[in-house]
Simulated assay, not measured.
Amino acid sequence: MKRSIIIVLDSVGIGEMPDACNYGDAGSNTLHNIAEAVGGLELPNLESLGLGNIYRIKGVHAQSNPKGCYGKMAEASRGKDTTSGHWEMAGVILENALPTFPQGFPQEFIARYEKAIGRGVLGNEVASGTEIIQRLGEEHLRTGKPIVYTSADSVFQVAAHEEVVPLPELMHFCKLAREMLTGDLQVGRVIARPFLGQVGEFYRTSHRHDFALEPPRKTLLEYISEQGLAVNAVGKIRDIYAGKGITDFCSTKSNMDGVDNTLAYMTKTNVGLIMTNLVDFDMVYGHRNNVEGYVQALKDFDQRLPELVALLRPEDLLVITADHGCDPTFPGTDHTREYVPLLVYGQSVKHGVNLGVRSTFADLGATVAEYLGLDPLPVGKSFLAEIRND
């Protein structure tokens, strides 16, 4: 009757990786820099698990005997996006980075795409999603042309006002893009970005949907579900893994909605995996350089952590981590190439084990696989023997 609960704090990085300079991210450190910007963080519950033992975070103190095991993980895959980070956690390391388009997508492709959807498009540039809808939203209302844009990540994003392009039609546009983006254009995700509002006051809605590339190899989620165990996905987890290996899922409207749904699964799922992505850290605050909002989101999660701990059963394994960084104090609005925190807790887990610096996110997947009694994954080194309280 074993369960593992993995909670991914989307973008909550904990310091630049050695190759961060290759990505223009030297000096990035999401948690540390946020704490410095506001004079310190108060995260007592994460602190008690050992967050302050991983790295210096102003206001978050190292514990002499934290309740959890702690460390940080390096990304072995090329890149710094959601797809590569989550896939690596589940045992798929990408040797080649997914393609990005700093000059926009090739005009030949855009022409074919316009023909396929039956209308022209606006944009086709690297942009902040909140900025581009303000800048091109009025023209979009007038012409009905969807707004296409990308970022430093491997994404093709399509934004449209819900009263101009109804949601089913926008989803159709994105499905077509997913089918057309092949070969050298095979981005990690096609993202529907619906919005509402009036000129000068446009805002994105919660109806975002990701059309992800299927993982090139079998992931931890598939290995688990093939054994007849539950794999419950909360938030955009289902999208990231293109539904592969997932037995049940729910979308979320916010971080706190994500916590609520995680708690709901914990009350009804007996064995297997519950995996949650809390996207607001990244989407709402990191990409918008909103330091104060990011701080509040961290506090909000910290305050809910005792609820999660209270529902843990004696054999449960709780893991709190991230998929990349998105330092809101850093120039630009893109993800940052960072280590991610690793906190592990459970009644059958030792206290205060320093897991050090893991060479790949895949160590997490290898550990969960061993914990659930599966055969070893092709990549990753399990740390279960280090933390198990036999």
Score class of each variant (00 low, 15 high):
Val234Ile: 15
Gly197Ser: 01
Leu342Trp: 05
Gln347Ala: 09
Phe109His: 05
Thr247His: 02
Phe105Asn: 07
Thr269Gly: 02
Leu263Met: 08
Met275Cys: 14
Tyr294Asp: 01
Glu162Phe: 09
Gln227Tyr: 05
Leu374Tyr: 03
Arg208Gly: 11
Glu315Gly: 06
Gln107Ala: 11
Gly137Phe: 09
Lys67Arg: 13
Lys2Asn: 13
Ile117Pro: 08
Tyr149Trp: 15
Val231Thr: 03
Arg337Thr: 09
His161Gln: 02
Lys80Asn: 00
Glu131Gln: 14
Asn33Arg: 12
Pro215Arg: 07
Lys58Thr: 06
Tyr241Thr: 11
Pro44Ile: 05
Asp25Tyr: 03
Val271Asp: 13
Val231Ser: 06
Val291Trp: 03
Gly235Ala: 08
Met180Trp: 11
Glu201Gln: 09
Ile5Val: 15
Glu88Trp: 07
Val379Gly: 14
Ser251His: 04
Ile240Glu: 05
Ser154Phe: 09
Val349Glu: 01
Gly356Asn: 07
Ile6Ala: 00
Phe195Ala: 04
Val379Trp: 12
Gln103Tyr: 14
Tyr241Pro: 08
Gly352Leu: 05
Val60Cys: 04
Met283Val: 15
Tyr203Val: 13
Asp316His: 04
Val295Lys: 13
Leu311Asp: 11
Arg142Asn: 06
Val271Asn: 12
Ala297Asp: 06
Gly197Leu: 03
Ala90Ser: 14
Gly356Met: 11
Cys326Glu: 03
Leu185Lys: 08
Pro99Trp: 08
Leu221Gly: 03
Leu213Cys: 11
Glu179Gln: 15
Tyr223Pro: 12
Met89Trp: 07
Ile387Met: 05
Leu312Met: 13
Ala159Thr: 12
Ile320Pro: 00
Thr267Met: 10
Ile117Ser: 07
Met1Tyr: 09
Gly243Pro: 13
Phe361Ser: 02
Cys174Leu: 06
Leu377Gln: 14
Thr336Val: 02
Asp323Gly: 09
Val155Lys: 13
Gln103Trp: 14
Val319Ala: 01
Asn45Asp: 04
Ser48Tyr: 09
Met275Ala: 15
Ala97Thr: 14
Val279Gly: 05
Leu308Phe: 02
Leu122Pro: 15
Lys58Asp: 04
Thr82Val: 03
Leu273Ala: 09
Ala37Asp: 13
Gly144Val: 01
Ala233Pro: 11
Ile133Glu: 12
Asp10Glu: 10
Ile5Cys: 11
Val187Arg: 02
Asn65Asp: 11
Ile7Cys: 03
Lys244Glu: 15
Thr205Gln: 01
Trp87Val: 10
Glu292Cys: 00
Glu179Cys: 03
Ala264Pro: 01
Asp334Tyr: 02
Pro215Phe: 11
Ser225Gly: 07
Gly71Val: 00
Pro314Thr: 07
Lys236Ile: 10
Thr205Arg: 01
Gly59Pro: 10
Pro106Phe: 01
Asp323Glu: 09
Leu221Ser: 13
Ser348Asn: 14
Leu372Val: 05
Asp316Asn: 06
Tyr345Gly: 00
Phe249Tyr: 12
Gly235Met: 11
Pro306Leu: 03
Pro376His: 06
